[in-house]
């Protein structure tokens, strides 16, 4: 009998590959999870409060109640993700024990460790981590992340930070591609990243794991913007269930993510969606979640 290997890096990255070109939606109840699946989501992120509410309520934000995660797992057949606090490897162990398909080590929750992220190689479940620049992205990959997403600024309905982070990461990948072999040492040193990873990015012109976009997306046009900039999928958090017509908006964002390069289709799916979430400007917020993580 041939050996059967689980939890390897190719197997973890494999699920991230399957989520490409899709929309991952934040949901807080089994009913919302059904709406997301009906609309064509490729996965749902199960959490107790969407980031807009975490921002409003304040306090410490933690991993969700296992009962709530189980309820969402039972409601849908698509992959279910859940968030653990940065550095909180026990929350991640619990999420793995619950059988979630992906763990998001997320800056949206209150960090548990201000120096260390989770050693993600110790887990069978794959991890996604946020990044604002190439250094963070490379450090998270070297800790075992199977997917990187832009952090953006969750719960704002404002895409400006996600665009900044995507451009940071993709722009630096292009610069690394132009660097000569001696300059790659400096890229590694300046970003506290392993040299072989920098060399691999220089050679292939991309990260060794999928790069998705998250943080502030609220409209089909936002999703298509992220995709045209070079994201391979999008996460939509508060943007769907804080809008007037979640089901229609969710379906429209799914179509916009597939047809991101077709303005005729984008115009069609952007009609009649009701009001989007209100959104807030970056100068109106007290705390930037994107600054969490090291």
């Amino acid at each position: 009998m041939p050996e059967q290997i689980t939890g390897s890096f190719p197997v973890k990255r494999g699920l991230a590959e399957m989520l490409k070109g899709g929309v991952i939606m934040d949901v807080v109840t089994p009913e919302q999870a059904k709406i997301a699946e009906d609309a064509g989501a490729v996965a749902v992120m199960a959490l107790e409060r969407v980031p807009a509410d975490i921002r409003r309520d304040g306090g410490v934000a933690r991993m969700s109640d296992p009962d709530m995660i189980e309820g969402i797992k039972a409601a849908v057949s698509i992959p279910v993700m859940a968030k653990a606090r940065i550095g909180h490897f026990v929350e991640a162990q619990i999420l793995e024990a619950l059988g979630v398909d992906f763990v998001d080590e997320s800056e949206v929750l209150t960090p548990a460790d201000e120096t260390h992220h989770i050693d993600k190689f110790k887990f069978t479940v794959p991890f996604v981590c946020g990044a604002t620049n190439i250094g963070e992205a490379m450090r998270r990959i070297s800790e075992g992340a199977a997917m990187i997403r832009s952090k953006g600024e969750a719960g704002t309905g404002n895409v400006v930070e996600a665009v900044r982070h995507l451009r940071n990461i993709l722009g630096d990948i292009r610069k690394i591609g132009q660097a000569d072999s001696a300059e790659l040492f400096e890229w590694a040193k300046a970003n506290q990243a392993p040299l072989p990873l920098v060399q691999e990015i220089a050679e292939t012109g991309k990260l060794p794991v999928p790069l998705f976009c998250a943080g502030g997306l609220a409209t089909p046009a936002d999703a298509a913007l992220a995709m045209q900039l070079g994201a391979e999928s999008v996460f939509v958090g508060s943007g769907i269930f804080k809008s007037d017509e979640p089901a229609r908006r969710a379906a429209a964002i799914v179509e916009a993510t597939t047809h991101f390069n077709d303005p005729q289709i984008l115009a069609k799916v952007s009609r009649g969606l009701g009001a989007p979430m209100t959104g807030i400007g970056m100068d109106e917020i007290n705390e930037r979640y994107a600054e969490r993580g090291w």
Partner: peptide
């Protein structure tokens, strides 16, 4: 099964020829 059960393994594919090495299969959910 779910992602925790996803796996990789070698597969014998006779169609690839009598001396072909196994094909590495990645099974995701």
């Amino acid at each position: 099964g779910r992602q925790l059960d996803s796996f990789e393994t070698d597969l014998v594919v006779p169609e690839l020829g009598p001396d072909a090495t196994p094909f590495h299969g990645v099974f995701i959910r």
